[in-house]
Amino acid sequence: MWYLITILVIVLDQITKYLAVKYLKGKSSFVIIEDFLQLYYVENYGAAFGILQNRKIFFIIVTSIVIISIVFFLCKNPYNLSKIMQIALSMLLGGSIGNLIDRIRLGYVVDFISIRIGKGYDFPVFNIADTFIVIGTFLIVIMVLLDRYEA
């Protein structure tokens, strides 16, 4: 089951990034909810929050190690992990692969979701893969802390 979720995350991520390039690149932001949610095309050459700019090879190597480790872990423990842990790992895996595809193909990651809190805080622009990476990581941490990761 985990590979289906992984594939779904990758497909959803790549389709939304394609649409962002097609409809947002070179244009002003598309406001969905005033002073809260907008779509805005950004080419991210770094990691989260724009850190470590222009470290393409570094990110490709680290992400590849993470991907191989997750796949190895899921294949080695298919019946020992709870369903939620399998889902969380597959979300993390799919998001990682989605961003890796961008880094290899484009040299940067396409980001397009922008959240603001009023006129004050402007959250860094992100994408669907980032969303699944964060949710998957959060679930993994919770499952490990509560000792609920085994079946």
Results as ranks from 00 to 15, higher is better:
Gly107Trp: 01
Phe49Thr: 08
Phe73Ser: 10
Val144Ala: 12
Ile117Trp: 15
Asn80Gln: 14
Val11Arg: 06
Val62Gln: 09
Val11Thr: 13
Phe123Trp: 15
Gly107Ser: 01
Ser90Trp: 01
Thr137Pro: 03
Tyr45Pro: 00
Ser64Gly: 15
Ile113Arg: 01
Ile84Gly: 07
Ile101Tyr: 13
Tyr108Gln: 10
Val9Glu: 11
Gln14Lys: 09
Asn54Arg: 09
Arg148Val: 00
Ile61Met: 10
Gln14Thr: 03
Asp102Lys: 02
Val141Glu: 02
Gly98Phe: 13
Gly46Ile: 04
Tyr108Lys: 10
Asp13Thr: 04
Ile10Thr: 02
Phe112Ser: 03
Thr16Ala: 13
Lys119Asn: 15
Asp35Val: 00
Ile133Ala: 09
Lys25Gly: 04
Thr137Glu: 05
Met85Trp: 06
Leu145Asp: 01
Ile142Ala: 09
Ser114Leu: 07
Ile87Leu: 14
Val125Gly: 08
Val62Lys: 08
Gly107Ile: 01
Leu100Asp: 02
Ile113Lys: 02
Val109Asn: 01
Leu145Thr: 00
Tyr41Ile: 05
Phe138Gln: 00
Ala151Phe: 04
Leu93Trp: 07
Ala47Asn: 03
Gln53Tyr: 03
Tyr41His: 15
Ala129Asn: 12
Gly26Ile: 02
Ser90Glu: 01
Gln38Ala: 10
Val110Thr: 14
Thr16Tyr: 04
Val144Leu: 15
Phe30Met: 08
Met91Tyr: 08
Ser69Tyr: 11
Tyr3Asn: 05
Leu39Trp: 09
Gln86Phe: 07
Gly136Tyr: 03
Ile101Phe: 15
Phe138Tyr: 04
Met1Val: 03
Leu145Phe: 09
Arg55Ile: 01
Phe59Gln: 07
Pro78Arg: 14
Lys56Met: 04
Gln14Leu: 07
Tyr23Arg: 09
Gly26Trp: 07
Leu12Asn: 05
Ile15Gln: 11
Tyr23Cys: 05
Lys119Pro: 02
Met1His: 12
Tyr40Ala: 04
Gly120Met: 12
Phe72Gly: 00
Ile32His: 10
Leu4Pro: 07
Gly94Gln: 12
Lys25Phe: 03
Ile101Gly: 11
Gly94Asn: 11
Val9Leu: 03
Asn77Asp: 10
Leu93Met: 08
Arg105Thr: 09
Leu106Gly: 08
Ile135Met: 08
Met85Arg: 02
Glu34Lys: 15
Met143Asn: 13
Leu89Ala: 05
Gln86Pro: 03
Ser29Tyr: 02
Val9Gly: 06
Ile10Cys: 07
Tyr149Ser: 10
Val11Asp: 10
Ile70Ala: 09
Gly26Phe: 05
Pro78Ala: 02
Ile133Cys: 12
Lys56Gln: 13
Asn54Gln: 05
Ser28Gln: 14
Ile117Arg: 04
Asp13Ala: 02
Gln38Thr: 12
Gly107Ala: 01
Gly94Cys: 13
Gly98Tyr: 13
Met143Trp: 00
Tyr79Ile: 06
Asp147Met: 00
Phe132Thr: 08
Asp13Lys: 06
Asn44Gly: 03
Ile60Lys: 10
Leu19Tyr: 13
Thr137Tyr: 10
Val66Ile: 15
